[in-house]
């Protein structure tokens, strides 16, 4: 459904997109992951026809993203990464303007989504918080029941409850055979919804994997506190990657060998276990390392 082929756009020697290739099948949810400034939004701008590639091309449903930008929008919903609406409008005013510009008359889906996200549509947009604006943006992207959804960091600004509502919405759309591309820097969000993911860094795609494979290379660090020095030694002498962090406290890095880790812990008396919050660099160290090597 979405095809990106040899897409290149050079801003400077270092910045831009360099020979990007990936494909999203119909009915598939594709996660697009990378640190800030890696080129996620730039790729999406190409898909939306805001930018003309230097070479290569991208297409949605067989239509070229640059030449057929307006026609593609009939079947596409878009959520920009940075949400700014027209000035001096209420949430509802804005949504109905978008509907009219789409020549859409049914408000059923729109009202359903407003209900679902508990949005106060009468509030003027300039008085809305970031999360509320994000909800308006999400509703604008979903309300015409598009076949393709392009979402740039969709959950930023949403509270955990609304993130759940959003993830449920994505899963529901997936059931309806919609094609979804969403960018994110949160692995958790991608993990719960996506079938496959592309990882981008410095404008180059460093990995294109299905979700199952990604989980096995994902590194997680657990902080384990055990009851006795004996248990401590058992852990330190195992095959796992460990690091002593304090008295009877150890950091264990797990990468695909969850089973082994669990079996090891079952032999110990664990007082406390916690996962350390991690950044993207951490999670995809595997890929980033590999890139460093090829350099």
């Amino acid at each position: 459904m979405i095809i990106v082929k040899g897409l290149s756009k050079r801003f400077t020697e270092e910045k831009g997109l360099f020979d990007l290739n990936f494909e999203v099948q119909k009915g598939e949810v594709f996660g697009y992951i990378g640190p800030n400034g890696a080129g996620k939004s730039t790729t999406i701008r190409h898909l939306m026809g805001f930018m003309k590639p230097d070479s290569g091309h991208s297409s949605i449903d067989g239509m070229d993203c640059w030449n057929n930008a307006a026609r593609i929008q009939e079947q596409t919903g878009y959520l920009p990464g940075e949400i700014v609406f027209l000035e001096g409008m209420t949430g509802l005013g804005f949504l109905s303007l978008v509907q009219k510009m789409r020549k859409q008359t049914s408000t059923k889906r729109r009202d359903e989504l407003i209900e679902r996200f508990q949005l106060d549509v009468k509030a003027p947009i300039r008085k809305m918080s970031k999360g509320m604006k994000q909800k308006v943006g999400i509703i604008a992207a979903f309300m015409h029941e598009p076949q393709v959804l392009i979402l740039d960091e969709p959950t930023s600004g949403l509270d955990p409850l609304m993130q759940r509502v959003f993830i449920d919405l994505i899963l529901e759309e997936k059931q309806n055979n919609k094609t979804i591309l969403m960018s994110s820097h949160s692995f958790q969000e991608i993990e719960r919804t996506c079938d496959s993911a592309g990882i981008i860094k410095d404008g180059k795609l460093v990995a294109l994997e299905d979700m199952h494979r990604l989980r096995t290379v994902q590194r997680r660090v657990f902080e384990v506190k055990v009851k006795s020095e004996n248990d401590m030694n058992t852990i330190l002498h195992s095959n796992l990657d460990t690091e002593v962090k304090g008295e009877r406290t150890v950091h264990v890095t797990v990468q695909g060998n969850d089973q082994e880790f669990l079996q090891l812990l079952s032999g110990c008396e664990v007082q406390h276990i916690d996962t350390r919050p991690q950044d993207l660099e951490d999670i995809f160290m595997h890929y980033y390392d590999r890139r460093e090597v090829t350099k």
């Binding site: 878009y78 027209l86 978008v98």
Partner: peptide, 9 residues
């Protein structure tokens, strides 16, 4: 972006 995200060229 919002105007161009509708089917208007």
């Amino acid at each position: 972006a919002y105007m161009l995200a509708t089917p208007n060229s």
